[in-house]
């Protein structure tokens, strides 16, 4: 079994969001970077669990990013990836990124490609579906459970107001979310071992980009909270009914 896990670098969940260069760039100064939580907690950890159940499993990691992505991919190796490929490019275009990943995936002949359900920075939720289409593979999005049954995967995915169980023959592309696995902390053995695991850097293939970011905006500041006395909660109901008109 060969699993490819797609890893993305994102600002920490508590990072201050601000923009530079006339609001055309994310202000990255002083920002702490993490593995995108969906990629780490759910996609990668579930892949590690599959390897723990079957030692013959190989976990390869792929990321599209410049050299400043290396600490993130090393952390993913410390958690339990076997080897990693970094495609040396910086892009915010989902199609370009998916095309790079798909070209790696094609060469590697993977049984499973895992992504997180979205990144917490650009919230595209697009890479998994695009990679699947580029590889002409089935795609199960927003998976909350994943088990193997021979050469089939039994996957539970979230749908509007509930979930559905589906069965699909490998290979398959799966986007992972809460429920797939639990967050893990890398241990010292993993961290030491990660230093000697292969991290291959490849130059990007020539691919199209479909979109570009023209500018960023911050939402208008909130007017401030209107506090109602705890002695008079009826006033809150009146305000919601008559002023906000939401009930």
């Amino acid at each position: 079994m060969k699993i490819l896990v797609c890893i993305s670098k994102t600002p920490d969940t508590t990072a201050k969001i601000a923009f530079a260069d006339n609001n055309t760039k994310f202000a990255a100064d002083g920002v702490q970077w993490i593995i995108n939580p969906y990629d780490e907690w759910y996609a990668l950890v579930r892949a590690i669990e599959l390897k723990e159940a079957d030692a013959a499993t190989a976990i390869h990691l792929v990321t599209v990013g410049l050299a400043d992505t290396d600490p993130i991919i090393r952390k993913a190796l410390a958690l339990g990836g076997d080897e990693a490929i970094r495609i040396n490019a910086d892009s915010h275009d989902s199609y370009y990124i998916a095309s790079q990943i798909a070209s790696i995936a094609k060469e590697g002949n993977y049984d499973l490609v895992f992504t997180g359900k979205e990144t917490i920075d650009y919230n595209g939720s697009s890479i998994g579906g695009m990679v699947a289409e580029l590889l002409d593979l089935p795609y199960v999005s927003l998976a909350t459970k994943f088990t193997l049954e021979g050469t089939n995967a039994i996957i539970i995915r979230e749908i509007e107001g509930g979930e559905e169980t589906c069965k699909v023959q490998l290979p398959v592309v799966v986007s992972c979310q809460k429920g797939m696995a639990e967050q893990r902390i890398p241990n010292m053995k993993g961290i030491m071992g990660a230093r000697s695991k292969p991290l291959k850097v490849v130059e990007p293939a020539a691919m199209d980009t479909f979109t570009s970011i023209a500018s960023f905006d911050l939402p208008p500041a909130k007017a401030g909270v209107k506090l109602v006395s705890a002695d008079n909660p009826e006033e809150l109901v009146r305000l919601l009914h008559e002023e906000a008109k939401v009930i």
């Binding site: 989902s94 199609y95 998916a98 919230n123 595209g124 939720s125 697009s126 890479i127 998994g128 579906g129 695009m130 699947a132 289409e133 580029l134 795609y139 999005s141 927003l142 979230e158 749908i159 509007e160 199209d208 479909f210 979109t211």
Partner: peptide, 24 residues
């Protein structure tokens, strides 16, 4: 709609039609 089904289909269609996608 950027709902569960939209997230499953729109990215594939983007590749199929070579059409840029903005989600959300």
């Amino acid at each position: 709609s950027n709902n569960f089904n939209g997230k499953a289909i729109a990215p594939r269609l983007s590749v199929r039609l070579k059409a840029g996608l903005v989600s959300g």
